[in-house]
Design a protein around this nucleic acid. Structure first.
Lengths: 142, 142
DNA sequence: GAGATAATTAGAATTATTCCAAGATTTTAC
DNA sequence: GTAAAATCTTGGAATAATTCTAATTATCTC
């Protein structure tokens, strides 16, 4: 897993925010893109170590925070419990399967978020809407 | 603040789940109903102490968890940070004001949650939908 | 009222995250 | 190209939120 494909856009985004592209940031980002299962910082740490065995957990936290700042990654929090990270930039909702604990992305029809926003009373100006479903997902194979 | 008004329904709900109404549970619930600003467990703890000075933080956590189990209270998590508690049972969304850090309840038109649920692909069966807005709320007095 | 069950309590333990200060790396200015 | 400045990474300590544990207390049942 060599972080080349996304190198350009990552470097660009970071530069836009006055930051540098580093191997650590590239690998953290690459790990998120490779397996999109909403990992925790600890899980990212474990995966990144395969590529950069000497990276520290603090650095993983730093890199994740940086990527969130650059709008390349979304931090997701439902339930108390560790923050999870999602590199899906398209507007989407999350479905949290209470049985497996897994989180699935749910694509949203265009306009839905705006429609939901339109229920806000005067004086409330939302720049983001987050939708979280909870329930059971049918097992893909059964 | 004597927890009489809600005593009946609280006792009933607890009994339905095979649990007892205790002074601690009543005061915790009463505190949530009295000031609906989505307090953290620590904040609830501070408020409850006015009534029950010897209550422990562990008990506050226990009581809150119990109330959540009985569906009398909703636990709300956005951002990493402490869980907040909300005694509003009507379906509603939350608006998180990024300037003040305050959270407001947003009433939802009937049917909206079902409409949102309808975007779920086949195989996903949601029994709850949570909607969180983030942005700036106009100051009431200015 | 004795025994069983349930709830509360204080403090220890755990988990997730942030902070910090030192060292390494990269950039900039000459 | 090198020195100084700026930025990053690192490991460990510190903090914050929550859960666990074992002992005590309260409540319910018969």
């Amino acid at each position: 897993m060599r972080p080349t494909i996304h190198h350009e856009s990552l470097t660009q985004r970071l530069a836009d925010s006055g930051m540098r592209a580093t191997p650590q940031r590239e690998v953290v980002y690459s790990v998120l893109l490779t397996k999109r299962d909403h990992p925790t910082a600890d899980e990212v740490f474990a995966r990144v170590k395969g590529e950069l065995p000497t990276i520290s957990l603090a650095t993983v936290y730093n890199c994740l925070e940086t990527l969130v700042q650059c709008d390349l990654v979304r931090a997701v929090n439902f339930e108390r419990g560790p923050t999870r990270y999602c590199p899906n930039l398209a507007p989407h909702a999350h479905f949290h399967d209470v049985q497996t604990g897994r989180t699935h992305d749910v694509e949203l029809p265009p306009g839905l978020l705006d429609q939901v926003k339109s229920v806000l009373p005067a004086g409330f100006d939302a720049n983001s809407v987050e939708i979280i479903f909870r329930g059971k997902a049918a097992t893909p194979t059964s």
